[in-house]
């Protein structure tokens, strides 16, 4: 009884200090075990030469040999690494087109005619379906002989290009497929932003004679800044994460020309024939480091907003 009372009063006095940690514990433990520690472990593995056996025998991994920065030095001599890096850059730059195109589509749809809500949801459709399906759709579109995009290109340029089989064109073909759902995502962000625009400011600017692009640039875009910020964040992250489409549409080919870092890492360490764990971890770290540049910037901005609010 006495002990119970002590316990109770301890709980009573410290409840407010302990409660947040009790609420946090389950989620935080899961997150630490499956996200935070693996990041550290991956960085550690990248300093080793560690060839696992085939994944089927994953429990009998061979022993590790410490090689310091050896894996990173090997990367610098690996042409596939530069190809992947260069393709990641193409993805990053071209994927950004989703933001202005998304804005354009949102402006086009921001009207009040009958049935417009259905139109908006149907335009958003591509984002809901899996990238695996998107990849299959576009492979079919590009298919030599009968694909409609193949036919369009043929009628414009006169040449017969099998886009996904061309080592100079394939990456652009995949990025175009990726832009389809990503534009839909940016569009929905902007539609929500446009919905919340202050109508008085717009009317006042119209009274002053502002219209068209001037109005858009000076009054509308500043109010859409939160939407633009999120659109850029999700597009940057999405472009660097690109994996599904590459895997489905070309499997990194032809001749490894469509590899990106995420897929290159998969080939080296996770695929059926990939057993180079240390090397794979080093590739993953490079991708991680690139993303951290952006993540730090986003977090810095969010932190500023936290402080202001």
């Amino acid at each position: 009884m006495a002990q119970q009372a002590v316990h109770n009063s301890f709980w009573k006095t410290n409840q407010k200090a302990l409660a947040p940690w009790l609420f946090l514990a389950p989620g935080m433990i899961m997150f630490l075990v499956y996200v935070i520690f693996p990041i550290i472990e991956s960085i550690y593995i990248s300093f080793f030469n560690w060839d696992g056996l085939a994944p089927a025998h994953i429990s009998q991994l061979t022993s590790k040999e410490y090689v310091g920065l050896g894996n990173y030095r090997d990367l610098l001599d690996d042409d596939s690494f530069y190809t992947s890096l260069w393709n990641n850059l193409k993805w990053l730059v071209l994927y950004m087109l989703a933001v202005p195109i998304g804005l354009f589509v949102a402006l086009f749809l921001n009207q009040k005619v009958p049935g417009i809500r259905l139109y908006k949801s149907l335009f958003f459709f591509p984002f809901v379906i899996s990238q695996v399906v998107v990849g299959l759709l576009f492979s079919w579109f590009y298919a030599p002989g009968f694909g409609p995009l193949y036919a369009i290109i043929k009628s414009i340029t006169g040449s017969e290009t099998a886009i996904l089989a061309s080592d100079t064109m394939a990456t652009y073909g995949i990025i175009l497929a990726g832009l389809w759902p990503q534009t839909a995502y940016c569009m929905i962000l902007y539609l929500t932003g446009l919905n919340n625009i202050n109508p008085e400011q717009v009317e006042a600017a119209r009274m002053d004679g502002a219209r068209g692009l001037t109005l858009l640039w000076n009054i509308i875009l500043p109010q859409l800044r939160p939407a633009t910020f999120i659109a850029i964040v999700v597009t940057v992250i999405g472009s660097l994460r690109s994996f599904d489409l590459v895997s489905i549409m070309t499997g990194g080919g032809p001749y490894g020309s469509t590899r990106v870092l995420s897929y290159f890492m998969f080939e080296q360490a996770l695929s059926e024939y990939g057993t180079a764990m240390g090397y794979g971890a080093a590739i993953a770290f490079v991708l991680f480091a690139i993303m951290m540049i952006f993540i730090s910037f986003f977090i810095y901005r969010m932190l500023q907003q936290e402080r202001n609010s």
């Binding site: 499956y34 996200v35 693996p38 990041i39 472990e41 991956s42 593995i45 660097l240 994460r241 994996f243 870092l261 995420s262 890492m265 998969f266 360490a269 996770l270 764990m277 794979g280 971890a281 590739i283 993953a284 770290f285 991708l287 991680f288 993303m291 993540i295």
Partner: peptide
């Protein structure tokens, strides 16, 4: 973060 840094 990219999935690849977690995968192994």
């Amino acid at each position: 973060v990219p999935f690849q840094i977690l995968a192994i």
